[in-house]
Design a binder for these strands. Structure first.
Lengths: 345, 345
DNA sequence: TCGTAACAATGAAACGATTCAAAGAATCTG
DNA sequence: CAGATTCTTTGAATCGTTTCATTGTTACGA
């Protein structure tokens, strides 16, 4: 009832040495069947559960990996997290999850916590500039993999998604539909993701002689911000209207869609083809199912774990030769009704 | 570079005893300023970080609390998690988060993992029937608080939200608007939440003589399922139509809203007043901002931690007198445009 | 100057699992 | 059947921290 059973209690109960109990747990082959049975029975009778603290203390490191994301509520990260957990489980590690909520101090707290826990390594989608802390960690033998951020390959491993390529894909798709007067809707270009997606779109535009791209700044990255932009569009005269709109994320696109739907004057995709970014769950169940750019979140999570494993290997018994890789994934175009069909008139 | 510094290294470096270093860390008042400075400097120079495994081993328990939720992607749980983390941080504990994803085996794995970690206690939103495992845990001194599930108060503490009251609130609100022909849209009533919300709605109906409630079964709890129901409604003749619709969750309500919006024949709220449940982020930014029933998620998370603390206190040095409480929160009505304005004709 | 608090610092013991050299048991070989 | 070989089992040492009884130091009043 009170204190839980230790390996010593099990040993006494089964009338064997503690080392034998440990062997049953870790190297069953080294133990005879008879002894094994007795020990297992004792474990069962006493309700013994391994004390991981003692195990780690001896081992010098834990079997956990720290993962700090910017927002667990964001489906993008939720998916990355799940993939990372599964990949970690396969190699016998567990993931400790921390949600920084874009807050540098929460992020810092989690780094401290994970360091005290002696995590094997850290996956992080950093809030601010944490290079100093990460360098520190590396010196102390805790390798780090940056998630959703491209890193200097001489210093860190990282997994990221090519936002420029995503922007190109989206714009190219609109152009392939025959649209020529495009608009880009996105928040401040100080956000790297937004800037890269815009840049990719401009690259696509440059390939088509008579195409143009107008940039519409949105006040934020929300549905309401999108609706604000949509309301401006609705008021325009026909010749001022774009025939293809690319939004820096799906929420903006849904907002734009709502504006157009409320007015009943412009049709999607006939008058305006609309594409978003992220392929959130709501994209498929929008009034007009929304085309979007999907990021390979599962691959991100899985690969992050793999890169961490590589770093750990490279730190092995031999000398400390650093081994970093920056893996960049290419996002994928998902075509739905909002950009379906033939070209506009 | 290699092995990280231990308290012993710090002691040597500062030329004090290990106990003194420990005191600096845990009981700074017991140490003179001079010594403290020397020790702190040594800590800094060596980059010492406490090894939590050793600390736990000595303490016999960790400073972590396990939390297992059904789906971290669900905003309801995301919010509960964050509140629990904050509340735990205040009392100096950290939260280990596990996402069962409605999968009993994942759930079981997390229970095992947390047990090995010797968590102080467990907060769980269980998938299936885990009473047996939880009894086991309790016997081993790990108290449990059920989250979002009402528990037998003689056995467990729990925090939950009164879904019956929520259903009543929603229906009563529609009735107060003058609506009398109500419809309830919800998935299988085998889901307790759905059944309770329906029951609450029926209770409200019973209070108003000429009111009626029609139950429309939806194929699931998604936007698409809601749209399916909405499409059926749109096809009805005027006298068959409800004038108030209460959906068992916001996704269904958004689906219904989409159907009506696409047809342009029925107006919200004039022809049909619509209310959902959960008050998800999207509710406020729907084409017609959606009225909803908000669950006090922050209070849930915070209270769950408090109840766990109570259980831990009760297990203290004195005899093991169990101390359980079932706290039931009342949800809150959030009125937006989808149920705004005066009664229907 | 001595005795006595009050305060600081010490370091061995304990927590529970794993490791590993060594001892012990069983099996095989000639 | 002795000796060699393989298979099992043993238990002390170890990991890094906290605890606490003990010793050492300082300050102060008598």
């Amino acid at each position: 009832m009170s204190r839980s059973a230790s390996i010593k209690d099990v040993a006494n109960h089964a009338r064997v040495a503690v080392g034998t109990v440990s062997n049953v747990l870790n190297y069953p082959d080294r133990v005879s069947q008879r002894t094994k049975d007795r020990v297992l029975q004792a474990i069962d009778e006493l309700g013994f559960v391994r004390n991981d603290a003692a195990r780690q203390l001896r081992a010098g490191h834990s079997r956990t990996i720290g993962l700090i994301v910017l927002d667990v509520g964001n489906p993008f990260f939720t998916s990355v997290v799940r993939a990372a957990e599964d990949a970690a489980a396969l190699q016998g590690s567990a993931v400790l999850l921390g949600d920084s909520g874009h807050d540098a101090s929460r992020e810092s707290n989690y780094i401290d916590l994970f360091q005290e826990q002696r995590v094997q390594g850290l996956l992080i989608s950093p809030v601010g500039d944490v290079t100093e802390r990460l360098d520190q960690l590396r010196e102390r033998g805790v390798p780090t993999v940056l998630v959703d951020r491209l890193a200097d390959e001489t210093k860190y491993s990282s997994v990221s998604v090519d936002d420029d390529a995503g922007g190109y894909l989206a714009a190219r798709h609109l152009l392939d539909l025959g649209r020529r007067r495009l608009a880009f809707v996105g928040g401040p270009t100080s956000i790297r993701q937004v800037a890269d997606r815009l840049q990719g779109a401009q690259r696509a535009i440059a390939e088509v002689p008579d195409a143009s791209l107008e940039v519409l700044d949105s006040a934020g990255q929300t549905v309401l911000a999108g609706r604000g932009v949509g309301n401006q569009l609705v008021r325009r005269s026909a010749e001022e209207l774009p025939d293809g709109v690319f939004c820096a994320n799906d929420l903006l696109a849904l907002g734009v869609m709502q504006s157009l739907a409320m007015m009943h004057t412009l049709r999607i995709p006939e008058d305006i083809a609309l594409i978003g970014y992220d392929d959130i769950d709501f994209a498929v169940s929008a009034v007009v199912p929304l085309s979007s750019i999907r990021q390979p979140t599962e691959a991100l999570g899985r690969t992050a774990i793999e890169l961490l494993a590589e770093e750990l290997d490279a730190m092995g018994p031999t000398s400390v030769r650093p081994h970093h890789r920056a893996v960049i994934f290419t996002p994928e175009l998902v075509v739905r009704q909002s950009t379906a069909g033939a070209s506009a008139g």
